[in-house]
């Protein structure tokens, strides 16, 4: 997977990007590249501005300075319908989706492709079916979205994003509401997706250990809103870097993740 991506041009690129609300810069000077099939994670303390950065990349916030390039073209050069065929998002906020079946929620991913009234064609239906199979939610098709579990909801939203047939997926803390089993399941699915479809994924993660597990590259956003370091998981996940990023006292991380950090250092050594 990683090798496949090496020679391709990045599908997401930011140049000296300042993001924030109004005039207030929250994350300054971000330089990010994501290639097709790559998973790039943003890690960092609460309030560092990971979500703000993602929202700016997703076009839901205007950049304060700098630019976002999608497929080599500046993002605001695209029409909104055009960008919706390239990029799917998964947000932390829960969609209300009252009285909607999972199938209806997923089908909304076809929005940029359907006609005036949003009626699904044969092709659309097939793509929805395939997305449901890929994400293992076929059996939920008829269930009400507001009655399924959190883990199932995240998978349904992922299927929705998949049937949008994006080149890029932007996920804001996709594992936040899940227990450890479902977190791992979700990340496996994501890995599988990027491999099969060559989708470029950029997402924020709360758990450094999971970011290490799933990412091709990791971006550290520090508490004062700088992109402090970008590298492969093994480059980034060192005791001193993670401790500094999260403002932990010396040794705390080691105490917390003794086994984890030790195995990390072991593998980095060989």
């Amino acid at each position: 997977m990683i090798n496949k991506a090496v020679n391709r041009e990045p599908v997401i690129k930011t140049e000296n990007l300042d993001s924030g609300y109004g005039k207030k810069v929250i994350v300054a000077g971000a330089e990010i590249k994501v290639k097709p099939g790559e998973i790039v994670s943003l890690i960092g303390p609460n309030g560092a501005g990971k979500s703000t950065l993602l929202r700016t990349i997703a076009g839901q916030l205007e950049p304060i300075a700098g630019s976002v390039y999608i497929d080599g073209k500046e993002r605001h050069g695209y029409a909104s319908a055009e960008i919706a065929r390239k990029q799917a998002v998964m947000l932390t906020e829960r969609p209300p989706a009252e009285r909607m079946s999972c199938m209806e929620v997923i089908s909304l991913g076809r929005y940029p492709y359907t006609g005036r009234l949003g009626i699904l064609s044969q092709d659309d239906r097939r793509i929805v079916q395939e997305a449901m199979e890929l994400v293992h939610v076929s059996e939920l098709a008829g269930s009400s979205y507001d009655q399924i579990s959190d883990g199932q909801k995240q998978r349904v939203l992922l299927a929705r994003a998949v049937c949008q047939e994006p080149e890029i997926m932007i996920l804001d803390e996709p594992t936040a509401y899940l227990d450890i089993k479902h977190k791992l399941e979700f990340l496996d699915l994501l890995r599988d997706l990027t491999g099969k479809r060559g989708i470029a994924v950029i997402m924020s993660m709360h758990e450094p250990e999971l970011a290490h597990l799933v990412s091709d590259r990791v971006i550290c956003v520090s508490a004062d809103g700088r992109v402090e370091m970008t590298g492969t998981p093994d480059e980034v996940f060192r005791d001193e870097i993670i401790s500094r990023l999260y403002g932990l006292d010396d040794g705390r991380l080691r105490d917390l993740y003794t086994g984890f950090v030790r195995s990390l250092e072991g593998s980095a050594g060989c």
Binding site: A58, A84, E93, A97, G109, Y111
Partner: peptide, 23 residues
């Protein structure tokens, strides 16, 4: 009636609506 499609997307919340191209 002709607004059915964006209304449907809007029922998922405004940010999701925005992300699929609703003005």
């Amino acid at each position: 009636f002709l607004l059915s499609k964006p209304m449907n997307a809007f029922q998922m919340g405004e940010r999701y609506a925005l992300s699929v191209g609703v003005n």
